[in-house]
Design a protein around this nucleic acid. Structure first.
Lengths: 359, 359
DNA sequence: GACCTGACGGCAAGCGGTTGCCGGGAGTTG
DNA sequence: CAACTCCCGGCAACCGCTTGCCGTCAGGTC
């Protein structure tokens, strides 16, 4: 009994067959007699044999791995996408390699470059790369892009027009007629889509919209936005995403504004944090989990040799969750509560994540 | 020009040397003449050659991958750990394979089993596995455990005693003398440590402590906790983690309690969400990022052949961030505000993440 | 009974690197 | 100038699994 992990050769010897037969017993069961196969499996099990994915990958190129590239893994937005993707992948025996670009294009490219040789395909979730860069990657590996419509590259997208309609309808239903859009990163395709959809839909409904930004898609970005909003108020605000909405509201409140009495705010993505704030955030939820799993399904089909055109990129429906951050439009504009009144304080501390390592 | 990616053989032919020389030019530059090496690198670059990690891994076993196993990737607690680990790994040319157990022991074991053949080492972040199961894994691959002190298995831990002291000192400083501990999962080693430390430290300071739970380490768990707390109040509460603290506070507030006037709450981990709630959550921050990077450093050392005893497991210092959820103890206990008064409403909706896939 | 067919197992050549070992030649030493 | 080192490049044998191809043999056909 050697301490090394057993190989097909060990199994072959023990079972009295050729290595090739052992191999086939696992990878091509139909190619070998059922009894022989059963016998081989049995001895393999007894020896504790497990096929080495690396060795298998070399001749076949099948690593059973796919990459899921995210712009920032700490953004709750990705949670459900990741879950959906991983579940779908695991179901088919694939492992998901999560890559995190930390919101940097360079890092994104690097980590993708690095992943390419080991993965069979790639899912790009809200990439910041240019169309041409994406096409370069698509040339090397099967690729699916989430939430970005790029010609000739297969993708899955949420129905952005629908999401915007839901947000606007909700606000209009509450009597709002003036909406400010807090813009996300310019490089984010979704941001552009939302704004475009918003503008055209608003036009149809005699709603005034204007855009401010761009801001980083974080709570900090939202705070910034609030500073600027202060001088150009509207009764309603649509934020590029929930994090932005949250930061925005917090700062606004610290200015003495009341949400939703003075300002109604709706976000996008419906991340779990929307339910942990006061007020809770009204948010439009894209089917994140479905996007993730669908992306992987399509990717796996592509890897399996399906033609890229299969499965027309239909836009997945979204849904609005009405919560405390939206309410009836004020009948007439009034001054915000004085700033001197006791407003919830905001902490200036930052997480102490960079403690020196004690050595 | 073939469309296949070039191999060392292609480079060798183009450069007029043997494949082995090409190989060495990359993996053992000192073993080959500098000029030759430079020439080879040049032709390699011209051909667009890049060494295939899979092929390299087969004979050497060096996959340049490590696994980071988390109990629940959607828990913000892991963010900084992940970042720290990934940075440290990337710095040394390693790729991190993130695995997500979704809080299930079976899944955790499965994904680790699955990862073992492809990774050189493993970091276990707050595993739910038993000591013996962990030792089994440690037998197969170099292993580092985060935040769990298990004999004979190398680990990195935060100073739990210190964190508890900080929480208690903070509360005592505010005049609190009765503390309830909201317990996390029984399987979480940290939970046990905290409670133990809390009990002994409290005893020294004439503070009454009691424990309730266990609860799942989520906002929902916190809500549950609030239900039970309602009938057995104390002026101060220490929650197993921030999520628990947040859920707890929200429910409490919906009961008419005021935080921090009636109840002070401190959490652990200092996740980013603590700064997005009202009130913001006072929290004790373990050096998450350092834990992550240190774990990887040690792991890499282990892989490099260092003896496991190297680098005594010292406990990393923690730090408390005082925020709005804690305040002076009430001079005397008084009734909570009536439940009928307008309390912030809590949404009953759940994220619509499981939209049927439209096919 | 000769011939054909299909199922099944084995042989051996890869997949793309790595590495122990060998040997030629330049440089060093006495 | 002989003897000895080193440096450096090549040869070839792996690493563990897959797979095209071939041979054997049982069963079916006429």
């Amino acid at each position: 009994m050697s301490d090394k992990t057993p190989t097909i050769y060990d199994v072959a010897r023990a079972a009295g067959v050729a290595p090739s037969t052992v191999s086939r017993a696992f990878s091509r069961p139909d190619r070998v007699n059922v009894d022989t196969a059963a016998m081989i499996r049995a001895t393999a099990a007894a020896l504790g044999y497990r096929t080495n994915p690396l060795a298998r990958a070399l001749p076949t190129g099948q690593t059973s791995m796919i990459a899921l590239a995210t712009a920032d893994i700490t953004n709750p937005y990705y949670f459900e996408i990741i879950r959906g993707a991983q579940d779908a992948a695991a179901e088919r025996g694939y492992t998901t390699l999560l890559s995190d670009a930390q919101e940097s294009v360079t890092r994104e490219r690097e980590s993708i470059e690095r992943a390419i040789p080991t993965v069979e395909g790639i899912v790009l979730a809200s990439t910041r790369m240019s169309d041409s860069a994406i096409r370069m990657v698509a040339k090397q590996r099967p690729l699916i892009v989430i939430n970005r419509d790029i010609t000739d590259v297969p993708h899955v997208v949420a129905d952005h027009a629908m999401s915007v309609r839901q947000a606007v309808d909700h606000l209009v239903g509450l009597g709002h007629r003036h909406i400010t859009y807090l813009s996300g990163p310019d490089a984010a395709w979704v941001n552009a889509m939302r704004w475009r959809a918003l503008r055209s839909y608003a036009a149809e409904h005699e709603v005034q919209v204007r855009r401010v930004g761009p801001y980083p898609p974080t709570a900090t970005g939202g705070r910034q936005a609030a500073e600027e909003f202060r001088d150009h108020r509207t009764s309603a605000v649509i934020a590029y995403n929930d994090l932005l909405a949250i930061g925005f509201i917090r700062r606004l409140v610290s200015f003495g504004a009341r949400v939703p009495q003075d300002v109604s705010v709706v976000g996008f993505d419906n991340i779990f944090v929307t339910q942990l704030t006061s007020p809770e955030i009204t948010s439009v939820a894209p089917p994140l989990r479905t996007l993730g799993s669908m992306a992987v399904h399509n990717l796996l089909a592509l890897i399996g040799g399906a033609s890229p055109t299969t499965g027309r990129p239909l836009a997945l429906p979204t849904r609005l969750y009405a919560r405390g951050s939206t309410g009836a439009a004020p009948t007439r504009r009034r001054a915000w509560r004085s700033v001197t009144s006791p407003a919830p304080r905001e902490s200036a501390t930052t997480p102490g994540n960079r403690l020196p390592s004690p050595d």
